[in-house]
Nucleic acid binder design. Structure first.
Length: 416
RNA sequence: GUGGGUGUAGCUCAACUGGUUAGAGCACCGGACUGUGGAUCCGGAGGUUGGGGGUUCGAGACCCCUCACUCACCCCA
């Protein structure tokens, strides 16, 4: 192999055959989100670094080791967004959107950037489909966004998914829980694996995720967040679950479900697919009641989720059906002109037409048309130009008929 | 950041414990068929075996380094 410039590690070209899939997922998502009253918002791909330091959180792995951060020419520190939520919150505050009568429900589709080590289902530039709702405290909205996610998955015919829900408490009740959890973990410290010993200090909730058998066993006896929730959080969680039951959504309460982002409060949830590898979460989200206020905005709660496009797409079964199109085969300059003119009119009628402008024998033009899957071939040579009658061939049946321009326009006028 | 696996034609893969000029299928181009696709047959083009170094009479294979891809850990969509 010659040395050549290649795509950056962890990034991928989305080629035409795949773009089709992307577009169909995007179209379905937009349609459904709009049905629920969401509107699209687009924010810049890069922001001031401090936005994520404050929003995503100084202690999150994302901020500590996964951000694409660089100085611009004026020396400002910028960051390619690793997630979307802080950007929307900034935009709402900056544009005073909370003073408008429109409901604060937004969706967004676009690239995110994280300096992770790539593996199956994880890329450095990846794409998310996000939705966010602000100012809705009622746990009914928590359940509604899960229901909306389920509806989208159903529309995309994604099967084999499992939904996990949890509550991570709030600023009032979580500290007490973490303290007790650490105390319990400390007691078992010597039996825990080295990894978990490290997590004890940094993120004790993560101990629940360990795959080592002895850790798993010990963790079963550790306190659960659900036993420590304050009255408000406990009620919120109970009513959230009630609403999920009301929507007849199957879910598993997973006390060890912790989103690795600092800002979550109360509800967190995740949808995992059995069709993926180790990175099996296709949707992750939760409530973040304090972020808006912490950014100096109004005291508005928020909730949202993100879907990983790459992961979602690999779980969607696609059946491809090609659009029918016409291939123009011509021989000689006169035929080329006549063909170009006719094809131009056909395109105005909504018929997809392809002419390839290269010197080829009729045989190879026919062969091309067949390979590309053309439904019809329009054949024009010197004789056809003289007569004003062209050969129209149906590639499936092999039938070929001589037609005038008017007849051809009429035939395709009826098809389209 | 840590570990494992894999790098041979555009794609999928061969090449016995190291041994002539690195092969095949599919795809591509052309011909059999001078203006008619798919099937068949015939032919053609396509490779510094990821890169560099080493061992050897001889390396695609063995050793070292490096790069890329990939899977997993950590974490996350």
């Amino acid at each position: 192999m010659k040395k050549q410039v290649s795509a950056i590690k962890g990034t991928k070209d989305i080629l035409p055959r795949d773009v089709e899939k992307w577009q169909s997922v995007e179209t379905a998502a937009k349609r459904i989100f709009e049905l629920y009253g969401y509107r699209e918002i687009r924010t810049p791909v890069f922001e001031a670094t401090e936005l994520f330091e404050k929003g995503t959180g100084q202690t999150s792995d994302i901020v500590i080791k996964e951000m694409y951060t660089f100085p611009d020419k004026a020396g400002r520190s910028l960051t390619l967004r690793p997630e979307y939520t802080p950007s929307v919150v900034r935009s709402i505050i900056e544009n005073r959107l909370y003073l408008q009568p429109e409901s604060l429900r937004f969706y967004y589709i676009g690239p995110m950037f994280r300096y992770d080590k790539p593996q199956k289902g994880r890329y450095r530039q990846f794409h998310q489909l996000d939705i966010e709702v602000f100012g809705e405290e009622d746990p009914a909205i928590d359940a509604e966004i899960v229901e909306m996610a389920h509806y989208l998955l159903q529309e995309l015919q994604v099967t084999g998914t499992e939904t996990f829900v949890n509550s991570v408490g709030c600023k009032k009740c979580r500290p007490a829980y973490l303290k007790d959890l650490k105390t319990e973990a400390k007691k078992a410290e010597e039996s825990l694996c080295s990894n978990c010993q490290r997590k004890m200090a940094t993120n004790p909730l993560r101990i629940f995720d360990c795959k080592v058998e002895t850790c798993k066993k010990l963790a079963q006896k550790f306190p659960k967040i659900t036993d420590y929730l304050c009255q408000e959080c406990e009620q919120h969680f109970a009513r959230f679950c009630e609403h999920l039951d009301f929507f007849e959504i199957e879910y598993t309460i997973e006390p060890r479900l912790v989103r690795g982002i600092d800002y979550y409060t109360k509800t967190t949830f995740e949808v995992a697919s059995s069709k993926l590898g180790a990175q099996d979460a296709i949707i992750g989200g939760g409530r973040y009641d304090d972020m808006m206020k912490e950014f100096g905005g109004p005291d508005l709660c928020g909730i949202g989720f993100a879907m990983g496009m790459e992961r979602l797409i690999s779980a969607v079964p696609f059946t491809q059906m090609k659009e029918k199109f016409l291939y123009l085969a011509y021989m000689g300059d006169g035929a080329k002109r006549a063909g170009m003119e006719l094809v131009r009119l056909l395109r105005r009628e909504g018929i997809e037409c392809l002419i390839e402008y290269r010197e080829q024998s009729l045989k190879s033009q026919m062969s091309r048309a067949n390979k590309l899957g053309a439904a019809w071939v329009l054949i024009i040579g010197e004789e056809e130009v003289k007569k004003g009658r062209y050969q129209l061939k149906d590639m499936e049946t092999g039938d070929q008929e001589e037609r005038t321009r008017e007849e051809i326009m009429k035939i395709f006028g009826e098809i389209s």
